[in-house]
Amino acid sequence: MKYAYYPGCSAHSTARDMHESCLAVAKALGIELNEIKGWTCCGASAAHQTDRKLAASLASANLLLAKQMGMDMVVNCAACYNRSKVANYEIIHSEEIRQSVADCLGQSYDGSQPVRHFVEILLKDLGLPALRKKIINPLKGLKTASYYGCYLVRPPEATGFDDPENPTILESLIDVMGGENVEWSGKVDCCGGMQNLTRTEITVRRSAAVIGMAQAAGAECIVVACPMCQISLDVRQADMEKLLGKHYRMPVIYITQLLGLALGISPKKLGFDRLMVSPAAVLKTTKAAV
């Protein structure tokens, strides 16, 4: 299993834990991730709010590099995944965008480069039976709320990730790891991450609503696959407590971090010490040594 790997900018900043745990898990499972040389920013939300053609061109620059490598592009950041998938969709469906991208890149691109999220290759390429064989440290019934947010599932015609209103890919992975999935209705709600700096109170209130739902369902932790969600739910918990006068203390963990534990990798190598809200309770339940 060989892939072109697009880490995304947050992999070296706010989501080093996501990147580290992804690489550690891939290595343990024999998945070869070849980092795309010279990769550039996908444009994120700043580009699409400013200029659709710029947004499609920035994402396409990396898609073209992956195409030259002749492998599927694997992305672990849900936001970069979204921008890359939307670029492909727009290039296929709009002559105007296709021409603009060709002009910006000095090269034509037809929108055909496959883009996969890391959890998709775990489920579809590796498969759950193969994954089950590698689990040496089961999660011992850890109660998890799988949270997808927006970028993986919307817009569904572009991402094609899973059922857009009730996705279950993360739950099927948790199941194999020996965790217990809680039933809750917040999994595709928005954390408000895009307004984290610009309209902070919106983000704080949205994220608090998401955590509140997970808490009410009895979750011991929230599992995420998106750095925007992770930052909003984790770093903003102190603000939620100040604004709303409630205590949350809900660990917000990347799916690759939790999978790493189940594969017997040390929490340190998985970036658990980078989380703002202490994951100690989770590590205790799973009996992983810190």
């Binding site: 010279g38 200029d51 061109s57 910006c104």
Partner: peptide
């Protein structure tokens, strides 16, 4: 580590 020349061209053309 990014290909800066490539990105500048994209911004200029856009």
């Amino acid at each position: 580590g990014a290909d800066k020349g490539r990105i500048r061209r994209i911004f200029k053309k856009a």
